[in-house]
Simulated assay, not measured.
Amino acid sequence: MADSGKTRGRFMVLLALDDGPKHGYEIARYLDHTTGGHVTLSYGALYPILHRLEKDKLVSARWQDASGTRKKKVYALTDKGHAALVEEREDYDAQAEAMAKLLGRSA
Rank of each mutant, 00 (worst) to 15 (best):
S106H: 08
M1C: 08
A94Q: 12
Y30H: 15
D19H: 07
L31G: 03
A76W: 00
W63R: 10
Y25S: 11
A76Q: 09
K55R: 14
H82D: 06
L17T: 01
E90N: 10
T69C: 06
P48I: 06
M12C: 13
D18L: 09
A28M: 11
Y92L: 08
R52P: 03
K57P: 02
A16L: 01
A83D: 13
D18A: 15
L17A: 03
M12L: 15
L46Q: 02
G20V: 07
T34G: 00
A28N: 00
A98W: 08
D93V: 14
I49L: 07
G81F: 00
G5Q: 10
D91R: 13
L17F: 01
K101H: 12
R89G: 07
D32P: 03
T7M: 09
K72T: 08
E97M: 09
R29E: 10
L41D: 01
R105I: 14
A45Y: 09
K71M: 05
P21M: 02
E26R: 09
T35Q: 01
L77H: 02
L53P: 03
H33L: 15
S106T: 14
K57A: 11
G20P: 03
H23L: 01
K71W: 05
M99T: 14
Y75K: 01
R8S: 05
S67I: 13
I49M: 07
D93W: 06
Y30M: 09
E88P: 02
G9P: 00
R62Y: 07
R10Y: 02
A45I: 12
A76I: 03
T34Y: 12
K6R: 13
P21A: 13
S42Q: 08
H33T: 14
L53S: 01
T35N: 04
D32F: 09
F11I: 08
D32E: 13
